[in-house]
Design a protein around this nucleic acid. Structure first.
Lengths: 331, 331
DNA sequence: TGCAACATCCTTTAAGGTTGCCATATACCA
DNA sequence: TGGTATATGGCAACCTTAAAGGATGTTGCA
């Protein structure tokens, strides 16, 4: 690979001049510009970003830490984040923590070691002090860190309430809620709170179940759902914390001969691609993933450039009514 | 952030000594080692990977270029690649080309500019000469480049044959195949070839449809499928080039009142998560994504370290029989 | 005993590609 | 003649590592 020096030699100038031409800074003659142009083309010169980064003492890379890649919610989120990052000239260093504490810690170190401009963290509970001395912004998504720079969330509470209200208005009398991982605290827990509040307000009995990290990691909730439906056979309405869980509930219902939506109404969360590929299609709470991604990257960029930044951003959600709560789409 | 120099000053040594201690090279006294240890802890020193990379003239980053992130096949692939890369000490620079030629070209430049160790390319048809002068390995997945370092594929032909044979053995008489993007040549075209060959061998009539790039990008095949099923109402067996297409076919069939598998058998390709979340569950051709990812990263690593590398690796596929070709799972 | 050969430990110096600052040089105008 | 706009060069710096070399101490052999 040709370097600045090579170009300079080829053009009969010094590296400083070539550098100035490259970056359009200071005084440059047309003559010099042309010579450099020719030399660059001839040598197929491409600036070395690593050297640039070293000099700047910063890269234009965002460390993106997620617990999962294959989970449709995260793949959707990653896709949107990449898009936004690209538009703003940032690259994505993709880090999959797999919800493993050590892997996450190591990835944070990798990010800082690689001088990332900032971190977008969609994953896990991080040891508080990990970011303290790191002078880079940390934007959390659907997580909250006391010492994070900013957090972006959807209105999980509102979503939980909407789900409960919808199920109740559909005439459900015995609700079941499959919630978050019991051992980790995160904003999504608010879905349960909202759901609970709405149920209590209308005096509708409900059962809350927690999930386990292993289920979250494997995306396999079958056994849990079977057990739940056997233990609470009177259930006629269910609110799942993700579309993945809701879709698997559909499968379980079918195997158990429970008709959806006739005998059981189901509402998911996220509104990812699978929600409209199940039969019946899932009613679900839509998360504004695109907007969340846009805001996250913007916040990161603002923080990097020293602007003041909202500590917490909460976006509204809305209910997407499909078939698991009523109307059958035929023809 | 503390630098080597800071640590050296703190420990009362020079940077080279500290560097040697860090990298366990040359002669080091216990005394020095201890002093450096203390200093590093005190200053919370972390090596600057950017400076290291500049010196080495290479990074431990893999540029991963995909056409889509949210598509379940690619999110699955990305996840596996990340996993394998991590195990071998590589980082992933995630590049989403969105099948846009310019974006892909720019991303290739970004990768080389950032001195990636190598590129894993799952995307698009690349202008031949783009890699010629770039001295870094390019591993293609489900693509083929004349001047690529190595390619990893699954046995698409075999998959197509299996699908056709299965449909035929199920008694289907009028087959429909929804294939690849017409305008781009890729190994997945072989699925169509295999399918065609098997049909011709058994003398079963079939219709082949191509898809468009816009459909691929939006993952919306609904209109195409409706049109196809209206145009070929006698169709009783279908082979789709991806599970995404197959899942959407299921939706269309339901809306059109076509019973699956009674009136229509469907086989997908990939065997991604959605395949077992549809109703009925999809029979599909399983791609060994994990193995493909493992091999791709290994090939890249071997190429980086100067080893000789297989030009083309083709892995076998197998048919996963679920419900869209027969057996209903009840209870 | 004397000295070469070697081992150990650390330092000095340079390099990697880029940019920023300051110095230099010319041309032009007042 | 002084001042300013224009154009370019020289050098240090960013942080790390590699190579060479200096300063000891130790061993081995005549």
């Amino acid at each position: 690979m040709a370097t600045l020096k090579d170009v300079a030699k080829e053009a009969g100038l010094t590296t400083s001049t070539v550098s100035r031409i490259l970056n359009n800074r200071g005084y440059i003659s047309d003559n010099a510009r042309q010579k450099v142009d020719v030399a660059m083309k001839k040598l197929n010169y491409q600036p070395n970003e690593v050297a640039r980064s070293l000099h700047r003492k910063a890269t234009n890379t965002i460390g993106l830490i997620v617990p999962h890649i294959r989970h449709p919610y995260f793949s959707e989120m990653i896709s949107n984040l990449e898009d936004q990052a690209y538009d703003r000239g940032y690259r994505i260093l993709l880090c999959n923590s797999q919800s493993i504490q050590e892997k996450q810690t190591e990835y944070i170190n990798i990010c800082t070691g690689n001088q990332v401009a900032g971190i977008i963290l969609c994953s896990g509970s991080v040891p508080m002090d990990l970011f303290e001395e790191v002078g880079i912004p940390v934007i959390t998504m659907e997580r909250f860190l006391d010492n994070g720079t900013a957090s972006v969330e959807c209105d999980n509470r509102q979503g939980g309430m909407m789900a409960a209200e919808k199920l109740i208005s559909c005439g459900c009398k015995h609700l079941l809620h499959i919630g978050n991982i019991g051992t980790i605290t995160m904003p999504a827990d608010q879905r349960t709170e909202g759901f609970r509040e709405a149920c209590e307000k209308k005096n509708i009995p409900f059962v809350e179940l927690l999930t386990e990290e292993t289920q979250y990691n494997s995306m396999k909730y079958g056994d849990l759902i079977v057990k739940a439906l056997k233990e609470y056979p009177e259930t006629d309405g269910m609110f799942a914390n993700s579309d993945v869980i809701a879709a698997q509930t559909l499968q379980v219902c079918r195997k158990m001969g429970i008709l959806v939506p006739e005998q059981m109404k189901i509402i998911g969360f996220d509104d990812v691609n699978i929600a409209s590929l199940t039969t019946p299609q899932l009613t679900t709470v839509h998360q504004p993933v695109k907007e969340m991604a846009e805001i996250a990257v913007r916040l990161l960029h603002d923080a990097v450039t020293g602007k003041m930044v909202a500590r917490r951003t909460v976006l509204p959600v809305h209910l997407v009514e499909r078939e698991t709560t009523g109307v059958r789409i035929t023809q």
